[in-house]
Amino acid sequence: MFPLDLDASVGHLGANALYVLAGFLFGFALEQAGFGNSKNLAAQFYLRDMRVLKVMFTAIVTAMLLLVGGDALGLVRSEVLFVNPTHLWPGIVGGLVFGVGFVVGGYCPGTALVSLATLKADGLFFVLGLFVGVTAFGESVGLFQAFFDASGNYGELTLPALLGVSPGLVAFGVVAMALAMFFVAERVEAHFAARDGGKPC
């Protein structure tokens, strides 16, 4: 039954080896999706290349179907899974800061590491900036702590609990929403491709 207790089954060292392997596979998948190239990523914000939306939502839909299906079949003990607590306003502010960094730098943290792994110079500078930002935030986090703790703190919030519907209905709704978004995204891509005369952004 999932989640697996890796420490118990393969030992601490074995578990860490598996974490490294999972990280490598994740990075490999990102690279194969073209996420090691900042031009591909930044093009999302100019609506020329919607692969970020499509890849990320495909990953979300796949993971969601496996989790909800595994839970329904009794294969996943969802009660022991960590649910990231919702801090609404800090999440919105952080999302905006993150988005600005993403569109300016062309990467998010994970894709910057993928880019660095393929020896891209912009990836190197982005990762250095990432460390500077992490250090600056870590040193000044006390200034934001009250905002983080008290502003829109909803605890462990899930869509089924919030909407009062079954996880299966939420899963179906998210799948339908993702497919509709993919459809619209491809139309938008086609529109801009025609307007730009087929030239890459």
């Binding site: 179907l65 996880p167 209905l169 899963a171 179906f172 998210v174």
Partner: peptide
């Protein structure tokens, strides 16, 4: 799969 989970997944 989503429809199956909606109908039988709860």
């Amino acid at each position: 799969l989503g429809a199956a989970l909606w109908l039988f997944g709860s």
